[in-house]
Amino acid sequence: MKALFLNCTLKPSPEESNTAVLNQKCRDVLEDLGVETEEIRVVDHEIPARMEADAGAGDEWPEIFQKVLDAEILVVSTPIWLGEKSSLATKVMERLYASSGETNDKGQWIYYNKVGGTVITGNEDGGKASARSILYGLQHIGFTIPPNADVYWVGEGGPGPSYIEAGQSNEWTQRNTRIMAHNLYHFARMFAERPIPAEGNTMES
């Protein structure tokens, strides 16, 4: 089983990313459960803003999209800026949406039997708003969202310490990281053993 984390931080590698650190906490739990995990830092790749699967020469999205298809679990992670998910997270959701009309071998939408979640960091309000936007978008295009499929850490309002500096010991975030990882795993395993039947949810039905 594979889990792909698309880190939508605005910080290119090798800059320190709070979102990557919280991602790693979730990855550790999944890996303990036997899941193979990978994180892609979106900002390190050339991904044009397009509503199409492949924008042509220089577009690195098709390679990332193939990794999405190869994974049973997708986590879109983002920092909070101005109370919202990052511009790169919006771009990722748009590129995922661009392929949502494709179908699997049963005629269902391409993201059926995949589960989605989100990881969010910031030192201002916006955790729930960012999660709501991402999780709604994922389920709308065919991903299944398990219970408690979001985890975030935000500090006090205004400038303040980051997740790395002050959030790693937060009991609520630690607990929800564990719960989210386990629920993503349980649902992915459930679909691996018993996929969503095609009856009633194909292009033909």
Results as ranks from 00 to 15, higher is better:
A129L: 14
T118W: 05
D28K: 14
G58I: 05
N113T: 05
E39V: 06
K128G: 11
A131K: 01
P146L: 09
K2Y: 10
W109M: 11
L82S: 14
E94M: 11
L138Y: 03
V76H: 08
S13N: 12
I64R: 01
G58W: 03
R95E: 07
W61C: 09
G137E: 10
V21D: 12
D44P: 02
N113S: 04
E165Q: 15
V76N: 04
F187M: 14
V75W: 04
T144S: 15
G107I: 07
E193G: 15
G107F: 02
D54R: 04
G116V: 06
G200R: 13
M190C: 11
G126P: 02
S87G: 13
Y136I: 11
Y185Q: 02
I120L: 02
S130W: 05
V29M: 00
E124C: 09
G126F: 08
A188Y: 10
G127N: 12
Q66C: 02
T177G: 10
A98L: 05
A3I: 10
P79K: 08
Y112R: 12
S99N: 11
P79L: 03
I64D: 01
V21S: 11
Q139C: 06
H182W: 03
Y136H: 13
R194I: 07
G142C: 09
S205D: 15
T173D: 03
A198K: 15
A55C: 08
L4A: 08
G56Q: 09
G101F: 09
N123R: 13
D125R: 13
S162W: 06
Y163S: 00
G137Q: 11
G137Y: 05
P12S: 06
V29P: 04
K67P: 01
E156V: 01
L138N: 05
T90I: 10
E46H: 14
G58V: 02
E16F: 00
Q168C: 10
N170L: 08
Y97K: 07
G83P: 10
E38T: 08
C8N: 10
A131D: 01
H186M: 12
V68Q: 06
T144Q: 11
L96I: 01
V119F: 04
G155H: 05
L96E: 04
S87A: 15
L69I: 10
R50E: 14
I80V: 14
L82G: 06
H186A: 15
N148V: 12
V76M: 03
S169K: 11
G142M: 09
E72D: 15
N7M: 02
Y97I: 02
N104M: 01
L82Y: 14
G167D: 07
T173G: 01
P79V: 02
A129S: 14
E60N: 08
K85I: 13
S169I: 00
H140S: 12
S17R: 08
R27A: 14
E124Y: 03
M51Y: 15
G142F: 09
R50T: 14
N113L: 02
Y136A: 07
P146R: 06
E60C: 09
R27M: 14
R175A: 13
A131E: 10
E38C: 08
A57Q: 13
N23Y: 02
I40T: 11
R189L: 12
S17C: 12
E94C: 01
K2P: 05
